[in-house]
Amino acid sequence: MRETDLTSEESRRFEVWAFGGGKGGTGKSALAASVGFQLSRLGKRVVLVDADFGGANLHTCLGVAAPARSLLDLVRAGGTVADEYAHATPYPNLRLIGGRVDEGAGGLPVGWAARLSTALRALPVDLVVLDLGAGVGPETVEVMNLADLKVMVSVPEPSSIENVVSLLRSLCLQRLVQRLPSNEVRRRLQAVQSGEAAMRVRSVGDMLREIEAVDPSLLGAARALIEEMAITLVTNQVRDDADRKFGAQTAAVVRRHFGLPMSYAGFVHHDDAVWRTLRRGKMFMVDASRSRAAEDIRRLARNLLQRADQSPVF
């Protein structure tokens, strides 16, 4: 298939995607940059957004300098017009709303997330790809909840999957707290976000039981809020056969034991070509376009566009 062959549905859809995963060092920025690049090669007009407040370096993955005006500048200015913050890159169809590595997320104005959402959705593009920071801080979770597709990036290690599950839990709780029309339910769910109660409320089923205890009439709405979340998993830095099975196994465990319908989008091999090009400040999709990782990214971008679930079907 030629790279420009997109179905009419794929060409038409506007979407915001977010790459997160809770753990640092899993390659979220490199993945977001390379998938964004690949989508632009497929003819999509793409804006990459560096939402790693305090650790912004998406520009480095693209091989460009830090932009003069950042995402935080946009948010702090209370702006709802993001186009002028989207800087050109050397690549056609691909622009960047960047960040500076020395700025933190403190002092965000009230209502910033809603304004950011408005600003991003007003961009004259086909896809916005957000790169999130590590951790499960409220700003990170809030930005991820803005996205139509939440891409969890994990490396095949137990600590990484723990962080993914922690982020999933925070995403669900925040979404339910923000959207369910009941102060009592909100208070109850906020109380279980941390502390001793956090151990009691681990899965979606536990959350639904908490809601049911306060107001059973909200159960249907709560289920719908969780069900409509599009979440998929990508395994990065895959080295062997066991690693290749990691993504499908993780998605199955999350579905079966966390109660969330997470799909599995695919994996990217560990590839020295990636760090060699990154070290030279280059984009590996260009400078190492024949590498195994670049091939994986091309397949992954296609899977993400098609929402293709790579989980085994029985």
Partner: peptide, 18 residues
């Protein structure tokens, strides 16, 4: 076979969750 592989101790994901 898939379910066995999930819980038999060979699978990395189950360490973090179960």
């Amino acid at each position: 076979r898939f379910a066995r592989s999930l819980y038999s101790g060979e699978a990395t994901p189950t360490y973090g969750l179960l």
